[in-house]
Nucleic acid binder design. Structure first.
Length: 423
RNA sequence: GGAGAGAUGGGUGAGUGGCUUAAACCAACAGUUUGCUAAACUGUCGUACUCGAAAGGGUACCGGGGGUUCGAAUCCCCCUCUCUCCGCCA
């Protein structure tokens, strides 16, 4: 959530920035600030009463010791009276705070100044496009046909065991998955990200920390008996490592990476986009996460994007880099780049990575802070990105590199896979 | 799953109703001393909200929530988590 001090001190700027997400935040922000004024007044009153109450308690102790029990009785009466006021004020205060938090939860992150205006994905800005889009002298097959033809992925078997969206990878298909995971992790590690294997289930507090809860509860699988959620991305457990932590400024940036399966219910998204590997309930992903000083976070975002681009180039996939417009950005993001690869048989661009700077939006919920020397702790900026999500990469690799009698594996990946051709 | 013990500041750990403004030690930071290092000594050493130009105040926080009391780290209730032993098990 946005910082209260920011809304208080730069109200107009905040409203202006939020307008890029096509929302009129004026009323909401106004209500928050109104409640803030109420809160202050209420707290001041309460603090005074508590102060008096503490004072009485001390005096009573003094009198008992010195042997004036009848004076003490008078004070006790005053204190008992005070207590009623205090309880009332306390209730009032928590009410105000709850209302305020509820409102703050409804306000999305304010887009960065460079975010293009727009409402639909069509209005995203194509920053660069690289690589050659392959053409074929034969009829190119979509990846689900290729997967079947070369016995790499069995979608129907997944349906039998679990349900739609849970494919079974077999033989060279499974090996390819393992190769990609190792390839991505090695590259991330070489770029300075420390590899982690986090839990695949998280508790409620972690869900709130990165913002999946309360809004996107329906998107996560929920193990109700223990109240754990299956992670929709490694971002959740990795970022929450620094929940309630004050980082030493000299330790910034903190760079983390991790491979995990990701679980998404994808409730309500059915249609032609979901064919094959395009949209799954379980998929593999390597995620990169950084905690950075606010002054450096946008430079860091570019570095992360460049890292992802370098992976796509090594995989020899045609890709483009998009800067998302305000309307297509996620609730929590201040600036997002999407990376898309072209899948030659489907003739579509597929999103394989989303890299975002959340500024202090997540850090504020999580209380992820850093401290320089003896200065006051301040909220860190958090960033994360996929580097990369596997299924659509596999789809593009299969489709783009197909020949009439097999699939070529790019050199960088062949080293990991142990084969350079699937026939 | 059964039985028991616990949860205190960055760490160890004292504290069974008011001398607690949470001791002491360690770590960290600054300084003194020193040819340098070490040691010693002195000082600083939590977070949030709030009042104040500042100096400096006020309030809350001892796992979380509730209760008893004029007053709770301390007593009572509930919850969560951790540890030990037993059982089960990859």
């Amino acid at each position: 959530m946005l910082q209260l001090t920011y809304l208080r001190e730069k109200t107009e700027e905040a409203i202006e920035r939020l307008s890029k997400k096509n929302i009129d935040a004026r009323t909401l922000v106004g209500q928050v600030l109104e409640l803030d004024a109420l809160r202050k007044g209420c707290q001041a009153k309460l603090d005074n009463q508590l102060s008096r109450s503490n004072q009485i308690a001390k005096e009573v102790g003094q009198m008992m010791k010195e042997g004036y029990p009848e004076k003490a009785t008078l004070l006790k009466q005053e204190s008992t009276q005070l207590k009623e006021d205090i309880q009332g004020l306390q209730k009032e205060l928590t009410d105000i705070e709850q209302k305020q938090t509820q409102l703050l939860y409804q306000i999305p992150n304010a887009p960065h100044a460079s975010v293009p205006k727009g409402k639909t994905p069509e209005e995203n800005e194509v920053v660069v496009q690289k690589g050659n889009i392959p053409t074929f002298s034969f009829t190119a097959l979509p990846h689900w046909d290729l997967a079947k033809k070369y016995d790499l992925i069995d979608f129907e078997l997944g349906v039998k065991i679990t349900g739609a969206g849970f494919p079974v990878y077999k033989g060279k298909g499974a090996r390819l998955q393992r190769a990609l995971i190792n390839f991505f992790l090695d590259k991330a590690t070489a770029a300075g990200y420390v590899e982690h294997q986090p839990p695949l289930m998280v508790n409620e507090a972690s869900g709130y920390g990165t913002g999946q809860l309360p809004d996107k509860e329906g998107q996560m699988y929920h193990a109700t008996i223990d109240n754990f959620y299956l992670i929709p991305t490694a971002e959740v457990p990795l970022t929450n490592i620094y929940r309630d932590v004050i980082i030493k400024a000299e330790d910034l940036p903190i760079k983390l990476c991790g491979y995990t399966p990701c679980f998404r219910r994808e409730a309500g998204s059915y249609g032609k986009d979901v064919r094959g590997l395009n949209r799954l309930h379980q998929f593999d992903k390597v995620e990169i996460v950084q905690f950075q000083h606010p002054d450096k976070s946008y430079k860091t975002l570019e570095e992360m994007v460049d890292h992802v681009a370098s992976l796509l180039e090594l995989l020899e996939l045609p890709y483009r880099k998009l800067k998302l417009c305000g309307g297509d950005m996620s609730f929590a993001s201040a600036l997002t780049y999407d990376m898309e690869v072209f899948s030659a048989a489907q003739q579509r661009w597929l999103e394989v990575s989303s890299i975002s700077n959340f500024e202090t939006f997540q850090a504020n919920r999580m209380k992820a802070r850093f401290k320089e020397g003896s200065e006051k702790p301040q909220l860190a900026h958090t960033l994360n990105g996929s580097a990369l999500a596997l299924p659509r990469i596999v789809a593009a690799l299969l489709e783009n590199n197909q020949t009439e009698n097999g699939i070529k594996i790019p050199k960088a990946l062949a080293e990991y896979a142990g084969f350079d051709f699937i026939g």
